[in-house]
Write a protein that binds this DNA or RNA. Structure first.
Lengths: 129, 129
DNA sequence: ACGGTTTTGACAACCGTTTTCATTCTGGCG
DNA sequence: CGCCAGAATGAAAACGGTTGTCAAAACCGT
C-alpha cells in the first residue's frame, strides 16, 4: 500500500517551495498518474499527521504543503514572487517568544513565524523590467 | 452615512481577541441589528484595506479580524483557550527577520509572527479541573 | 481461489467567502 | 418638493477549496 502516499511525498521532495494540494494533484495527473483528488488530500493529511510535511494556510485560504529537510523546529524564508523557500533556524526568536509569553504569565508557548521577501534572482528580474 | 462599517468597528473595538466574520455577524444580529452577512464582509474588508484592523487566517481557513490599539507594527500573544490577546512589540524579532532575510540576499522583508500560549487564568482552570 | 479488510476515487455535500443584481438610501439639483 | 444619479445594502446564487460518502477495486492471510 501507500503507493500513492509515497508518490505524493515524491512530488514534495523535489519541489522547492510550498505546493498546494490541487497543484500537486495537477502535476501527478500531468505525469500520467491515475489518482483522485481525494487521495491526494488524504495522503497529504496522513503525511502531515505523521509530521513528515509542513502545512500552512495561504492568505487566500488555500492549504500549502512542504516536505521539510530539517527534522526539528524551524521556520521558513519564502520568496513572495517565485515561492522559493529556505529553511532557517531562529534561536533568537524561540527565546523571544518564550520570554514574551512568560512575561505575560502564559504557559505552553508555541509560535509561528514566517518571513517573506523577494529573493536575489527575483529582485534582479523586478529591477530589470 | 453612519455606516454599518462603524457598527462593525464598534464590535471589534470592545472585543478582546480575534473575531470571525460570521461571529461578528451573529453578534450584530443578536443585538437586533438589521444587517446582512455581505455587508459585514464588506465592512471588514474596507477596514482591513484602510489598515484599521488586522486580518489573519485560522488554521481551519476562517478569516479572523481584530481592531488594533497600537498603530504601528506589532505582534500578538494569543491564549489558545479563551482567545484573549495581548499586543506585543518585538524589536528583537524585527531585527532577526531582517537579518535572516538579508543573509540570504532577500529584499523587501516582511514577516508574520504569532505567539500562542495558555493565559494565567486559563491554565488555572485547566489545572483545577 | 475466497472472505474480510483497507484503499481508492468519482461525486456530492459543506462552509466560508465573494459576486450578482435588484432594491433602498442619500444627497444634490431643478 | 419631486427627481434622478450614484452609493450602499442584503438575499440569494456562485465559487473554490476541502471533506464526507459509498461502491468498486486492490490487498491480505488463509
Amino acid at each position: 500500500m501507500t503507493n500513492r502516499r509515497d508518490a505524493v511525498r515524491e512530488i514534495l521532495a523535489h519541489s522547492e517551495g510550498f505546493r498546494s494540494a490541487q497543484d500537486i494533484y495537477a502535476e501527478m495527473r500531468a505525469h500520467g498518474a491515475k489518482i483522485g483528488l481525494t487521495t491526494v488530500y488524504r495522503a497529504l493529511q496522513a503525511l502531515a499527521d505523521a509530521g513528515h510535511i509542513d502545512v500552512l494556510r495561504t492568505d487566500d485560504g488555500e492549504s500549502v504543503y512542504r516536505a521539510c529537510v530539517t527534522g526539528g523546529h524551524h521556520h521558513h524564508l519564502v520568496c513572495r514572487r517565485c515561492g522559493r523557500t529556505v529553511e532557517v533556524a531562529g534561536p533568537a526568536v524561540e527565546r523571544w517568544a518564550d520570554a514574551v509569553g512568560a512575561e505575560h504569565g502564559f504557559t505552553a508557548i508555541t509560535h509561528t513565524v514566517e518571513v517573506f521577501g523577494t529573493c536575489p534572482s527575483c529582485s534582479a528580474v523586478a529591477s530589470a523590467s
